[in-house]
Simulated scan of single mutants.
Amino acid sequence: MKVAFVGKGGSGKTTLAGLFARHLAAAGAPVLALDADINQHLAAALGATDDEAVLLPALGDHLGEIKEYLRGDNPRIESAAAMVKTTPPGRGSRLIGVDRPNPLYDTLVRDVNGVRLAVTGPFASEDLGVACYHSKVGAVELLLNHMADGPGEYAVVDMTAGADSFASGLFTRFDLTFLVCEPTVRSVGVYRQYTGYARDFGVRVKVIGNKVDDASDVEFLRAEVGDDLVGWIGRSAFVKAAERGRFQPIDVLEPENRAVLADMRTRVDACGKDWATYARQAAEFHRRNAAAWASDRVGADLTEQIDPDFIINPAGIDVALRS
């Protein structure tokens, strides 16, 4: 299952993404965490030191290799250079799993305190004024477009804050999106903006309250987001200790907060897979990008990359692994 964490900057979405990934890994579930936020803090949320985080390989620095591998021998894609962030898989493409071995993971995924992590990479000084961060996030979109995840395995993505997530079709790539919401007017405003866009595309969104002090905070959130509120995290000594550099095992997390993580996993598992819709959405956003900029940039009609009869079958990953 593919899971996104979104919310206002400072709401605690990265903290929740890290806690959820750690909860899954501690339970023995296959999990891949992906940091797609312009502010790269997921490694720290998983307990990496600053020195360790700096050494993590960046997906954005290996975009050519990612494209070349995923392209496989798909006859609709002439070259890796012709691939863009929305290029969907087709017959001949290589599919990836959550934890199945492949050369990309060998190069780009690292274990951080028991959680496998890949990071988009920071916005570098040479990018200032000349590049868009979403070109880096495109590596995550390509990986998710080609990911044949099965039941009981999880890709957990920390998305960029606020409505920036809508700068590509990446927001449609998830089985369930958790919007982390503080009991404040500004945080609720981001919820309304996000759900206003997302639900036009059938994106499932559930709200997790964060920094909840008392019953009045819960009442405020319920009044503002209604039944979308499915749980909340109270002020946590565990989280405070982590933010001060004291990293502890996940089983030290307060029982009531651990129960929220367990319920979140149950809700993710209850989401049915709809691979046909997944393919349709991928094709729709690829057409949009092709018309807006991509075809002109590449010098070809990129809508021809869409294989109209192709729908991901998780069993197909075995074929990809042998190729």
Rank of each mutant, 00 (worst) to 15 (best):
K2M: 09
F5A: 01
G7D: 06
S11T: 10
L16Q: 09
A17H: 02
A17P: 06
A21S: 12
A21V: 02
R22T: 13
A26S: 13
V31S: 04
D35V: 04
A36K: 00
N39H: 14
L42H: 05
A43G: 10
L46D: 00
V54R: 15
V54P: 02
G60V: 06
G60F: 09
H62C: 08
I66P: 00
E68A: 14
R71Q: 08
G72L: 05
D73R: 12
N74I: 03
I77K: 10
I77R: 02
E78A: 14
S79G: 00
M83P: 02
T86Y: 05
T87A: 08
P89D: 07
G90K: 03
G90S: 11
G92R: 04
R94V: 05
G97S: 08
V98I: 15
D99E: 12
D99S: 12
N102F: 00
P103K: 07
P103F: 06
L104R: 01
Y105R: 09
V109D: 02
N113V: 04
G114H: 05
V115E: 01
R116N: 04
G121L: 04
S125Q: 15
D127T: 08
Y133M: 07
Y133P: 04
Y133C: 01
S135F: 15
K136W: 07
V137K: 00
G138I: 10
L142N: 03
L144G: 02
H146D: 08
A148N: 11
D149K: 02
P151Q: 11
P151N: 07
G152R: 05
G152I: 12
E153T: 12
E153S: 15
D158E: 11
M159K: 02
T160S: 11
D164G: 14
D164W: 12
D164S: 15
L170H: 10
L170A: 13
L176W: 12
L179N: 05
V180Y: 01
E182D: 11
T184P: 01
V185M: 08
R186I: 09
V188H: 11
G196M: 08
A198Q: 06
R199T: 15
F201V: 10
F201R: 12
R204T: 12
V205E: 06
V207K: 04
V212K: 00
F220W: 13
E224C: 11
G226S: 10
L229W: 03
G231E: 01
I233S: 00
R235C: 10
V239I: 15
E243S: 13
E243L: 04
R244I: 10
R246W: 08
R246L: 14
P249W: 04
D251K: 09
D251L: 04
V252G: 07
N257G: 12
R258C: 01
A259T: 09
L261M: 06
L261G: 00
R265A: 03
R267E: 07
V268F: 07
D269V: 07
A270F: 11
A276F: 09
A276L: 12
A282E: 07
A283S: 09
E284L: 14
E284C: 02
R288G: 07
N289D: 15
A290W: 07
A290V: 08
A291Q: 14
S295N: 11
D296A: 14
D296M: 14
R297D: 13
A300V: 06
Q305T: 03
I306C: 03
I306A: 09
I306M: 03
D309V: 12
F310Y: 15
I312P: 00
N313F: 06
A315P: 01
G316K: 12
D318A: 12
V319C: 09
V319F: 10
R322P: 03
S323Q: 14
